[in-house]
């Protein structure tokens, strides 16, 4: 496989996965805030700041007034905003176009028609009454596309590279969403005092990564800071956890590396090491310094990405 082709496949996977997470984050946070339990969480300003913080290096300022229709347009359809769902889908399609001779016709057609639907979406409808159906459509379509990836490609290196992109992006998104909601909970505590019940923010975090129901059935407890983080970072069986993503990343990198010799500098070696670290970590280790623990996740992902770049995508 060409290195450029591998790069295109990888980023196609990443952008598709990113569109899904962003859509769900907007959807869950916006709609749950409408009847949130405390004033702060109900405040649209607070919610939009959290959304902007997820997609950009936005710094939260309490005095800044965010216009709802503008921010929703920016996040969903604005072609000028690199982070918009439009641009994520458009980038996924650009990358798919670069490899359309490699991927299945059905997969390409689905991505292509998805792009045309997003392109033709009306701004007025979106900001006035279509936010729910727009974000739901993106979530559903990305799900269908993942099925097409899994169901219409031979499970060889092409498939492995796409899935590497999907799972690396998933790990990044979960870690970023954890950071955002962790900050939200901190802000809630600061403004309402420690007595405030932050379980609302943890529930929203779980819903933002489609893990609320799974978590409830697993713990049978109200989400708290620690059980939520334990579930989303360490649970190997939750398909939306960091550890589960690392298990998948590890599986797919092995398809690409047929070399029997161990190379401590390789991506494969580093991925295996990182996975072991999370497999043998406990929530007590994380609790000591939650902020740092979450930062460490992104640092490890950055190193994995760099190693993949030099080893496979160098063209």
């Amino acid at each position: 496989m060409l290195s450029r082709v591998a790069d295109n496949l990888f980023w196609m996977g990443r952008y598709l996965e990113r569109s899904e997470h962003l859509s769900r984050y907007i959807n869950v946070n916006y709609f749950s805030s409408l009847d949130a339990p405390n004033e702060l969480s109900q405040s649209r300003q607070f919610v939009f700041q959290s959304m902007l913080a997820l997609v950009s290096d936005y710094t939260r300022q309490s005095d800044k007034d965010i216009v709802e229709s503008e921010v929703l347009y920016d996040l969903c359809l604005n072609k000028e905003k690199v982070y918009s769902i439009y641009n994520n889908v458009s980038n996924a399609r650009k990358n798919a176009s670069g490899v359309r001779d490699i991927i299945s016709t059905e997969l390409y057609e689905s991505i292509n028609s998805f792009y045309h639907r997003i392109t033709n979406y009306s701004k007025e409808n979106l900001v006035n009454y279509d936010l729910y159906s727009f974000t739901t459509e993106v979530i559903n379509t990305t799900g269908v596309l993942r099925e097409k990836i899994q169901g219409s490609l031979i499970n060889n290196d092409v498939y492995a590279v796409i899935m590497l992109g999907v799972y690396i992006e998933r790990a990044y998104q979960i870690s970023n969403i954890i950071t955002c909601k962790y900050v939200d909970a901190q802000v809630a505590k600061t403004s309402h005092g420690n007595a405030v019940d932050t379980s609302y923010e943890w529930s929203t975090l779980l819903k933002s990564v489609q893990s609320y129901d799974m978590m409830r059935s697993y713990y049978r407890k109200t989400p708290s800071e620690l059980n939520t983080l334990e579930f989303l970072i360490l649970n190997p069986d939750c398909p939306r956890s960091i550890t589960n993503s690392l298990i998948e990343i590890n599986k797919h990198i092995k398809t690409l590396n047929s070399c029997a010799e161990k190379n401590p500098e390789s991506a494969e070696f580093y991925i295996g090491k990182t996975l072991s670290e999370y497999q043998y970590k406990t929530i007590d280790d994380i609790e000591k310094n939650i902020g740092e623990a979450v930062n460490n996740i992104s640092d490890s992902l950055n190193i994995i990405q760099e190693k993949l770049n030099t080893e496979f995508f160098n063209y």
């Binding site: 496989m1 060409l2 450029r4 290196d157 080893e311 496979f312 160098n314 063209y315």
Partner: peptide, 15 residues
């Protein structure tokens, strides 16, 4: 950009 020439042969850069 996927191709390069070395020692009078043409190659493509693969993974």
């Amino acid at each position: 950009r996927d191709l390069f020439v070395e020692n009078d042969f043409l190659y493509m850069k693969t993974i």
